[in-house]
Design a protein around this nucleic acid. Structure first.
Length: 498
RNA sequence: GGCGGCAUAGCCAAGUGGUAAGGCGGCGGUCUGCAAAACCGCUACUCACCGGUUCAAAUCCGGUUGCCGCCUCCA
């Protein structure tokens, strides 16, 4: 089966064929480092992290470039606000990015270039565009002339006349056409600057991505990604600059992720409805966010709510619960043959085993089929649930007396969770550790001590031995009222936070 | 004003021509002293609405309504 990717440029799902054999070049627009990251940023990084992982899983050798925009108007403004220089602001928020995104467990890109480290190449590219007649300078500013680039608008599917008709862009006297965009900006007093043929200045926003992507990936490369909001003007302008300069196609597959909405509205600074990762991770495990994000197709909008996040947490708890049960089961002594059962029980058990076997055997192919279809992570997660349900069924049949066959199936199931789960960055924690951590967090939240809980459980078990059900039930109800749920199992009484 | 997208059960969410994945929640059952967990069963005769194409439509076409995004910084 071939991998198919929805290409924004053509508006269709297309078979993915890299330019150079199994080598893939992929560039994703990173963040402008002037503030803390929010869950919208997280969606983009998670989505492309999974794409990166899946491409490698599929055997591609991927060069993955994700940049930091560390010079820009917003950084300058922020620097003035915080009373620091731009470099310090950039460093600070790059560090914050690393801390917050680090908790999400992202694979490191091959290269993480910064704009300010590529100024000379940008000047070079701007000069080329001026020489070729695509750009003009005005008092130290250099603008790209959109009218000169005949394909302008091909990515965002719009044309110059339409845009000018409904133009909301401020008319800038210096520009020939209101839609022309800055390649180089003259610096104002007090702003950071670099020497250039046009005087002291700094690069425009779009030029950095053209330079950094082509520097590490070549003039034409396979995949360029980012949030949907970058299609216009950022990516449109990147195409214009790059293709005007090289005369070659810039990018083969454009991939854009949808937004995170809150109350059906885009989360954005201007609306003031952002949720930062720092805030979120105070109360939520980063893996919950991952599961939540990957439960939606990457191109669809995601409406964020704590109810939905809570649902993701329930699902994750259940996954780890199953993984934990499997590990427990694997510690049990093996029963050499299938347990002798009475006719009906036997038939039922073998039906469960057969069904589980089929699910395990077909899992990988189904998973790949879903992912090959434009990275359908939601579909693939459905298959994880099927797998989980079947493995739980198997555990029910085994009841602590696994046969050789069951053991091997449980191991295979576990392997699917760890290997395929890795592509999603899910299920990588030791289940016992995960569940312990969950308890620890819960105790902290509820202000309870484990000693006290264990003491009450012991007391209750003494009562149970004496068949003093009234007392046992009272203790259980008491704990439940505090948020602690008891489970009596063959291997003893377990507790968890409700 | 221009361009684009979306509308699937109580809720979340896949599915883009072949007769509705999965999850959360709820209800019933098995298990249990009783529970919990887990498993099993049930929980959309139907995919915003109207019309059309087709042997066949949630899926394609036209229209209506509602919501959202881009066109200005944005993941």
């Amino acid at each position: 089966m071939a991998l198919r990717i929805y290409n924004t440029l053509t508006g269709k799902k297309e078979e993915f064929i890299p330019l150079h054999g199994n080598k893939v070049g992929m560039y994703v627009c990173g963040v402008t480092v002037y503030d803390l990251c929010h869950i919208g940023h997280a969606r983009s990084t998670i989505v492309f992290d999974v794409i990166y992982r899946y491409l490698r899983y599929r055997g591609y050798e991927v060069t993955f470039v994700r940049n930091f925009t560390d010079i820009d108007d917003k950084i300058i403004r922020r620097a003035q606000m915080e009373g620091l220089d731009c470099k310090a602001i950039a460093e600070k928020y790059i560090e914050e990015f690393r801390i917050d995104m680090g908790r999400i467990g992202l694979e490191s890109p091959t290269v993480e270039p910064r704009a300010t480290e590529h100024i000379s190449e940008m000047i070079q590219l701007v000069s080329t565009l001026v020489e070729k007649g695509y750009a003009y300078q005005r008092n130290g500013d250099v603008f790209f002339s959109v009218e000169k680039f005949k394909d302008y608008g091909k990515l965002s599917k719009r044309n110059l006349e339409e845009m000018q008709a409904g133009a909301r862009v401020e008319v800038d006297e210096k520009k020939d056409n209101p839609l022309d965009f800055a390649l180089w900006k003259a610096s104002k007093p007090g702003e950071p600057f670099w020497e250039s043929p046009w005087g002291k200045g700094r690069p425009g926003w779009h030029i950095e991505c053209s330079v950094m992507s082509q520097k590490y990936l070549g003039e034409t490369f396979d995949i360029h990604g980012g949030g949907k909001d970058l299609i216009f003007p950022h990516h449109e302008n990147e195409i214009a600059q790059s293709e005007a300069a090289t005369g070659k196609p810039f990018v083969r597959y454009w991939i854009h992720n949808g937004f995170v909405n809150i109350n059906r509205e885009k989360m954005s600074k201007s609306l003031g409805n952002i949720l930062t990762l720092k805030e979120l991770f105070k109360d939520w495990q980063p893996e919950v966010l991952r599961l939540f994000i990957l439960s939606h197709h990457y191109r669809s909008p995601v409406d964020f709510s704590f109810d939905s996040l809570s649902e993701a947490r329930s699902r994750l708890d259940r996954f780890y619960g199953t993984l934990n049960s499997i590990q427990e089961e694997l510690k049990k002594p093996v029963i050499p043959k299938t347990l002798s059962r009475t006719g009906e029980g036997q038939a039922k058990a073998s039906a469960v085993i057969d069904e589980c076997r089929r699910t395990i055997d077909s899992f990988k192919a189904k998973f790949e089929e879903a992912m090959d279809d434009d990275f359908n992570t939601a579909q693939a997660l459905g298959y994880f649930h099927d797998l989980q349900r079947n493995l739980n069924g198997l555990l029910d049949v085994s009841m602590g007396h696994p046969t050789e066959e069951m053991m091997s199936m449980l191991k295979q199931g576990l392997q699917h969770f760890s290997r395929m789960g890795w592509i999603f960055g899910l299920f990588q924690q030791d289940p016992e550790t995960y569940l312990k951590e969950l308890k620890k967090e819960g105790l902290k939240r509820l202000g309870l001590s484990e000693e006290e809980i264990l003491r009450l459980i012991e007391e209750r078990n003494r009562a149970r031995k004496e068949k003093n059900w009234k007392k046992a039930d009272e203790i259980r109800a008491h704990l439940l009222s505090k948020g602690v749920l008891l489970e009596d199992t063959p291997s003893g009484t377990h507790w968890k936070i409700k």
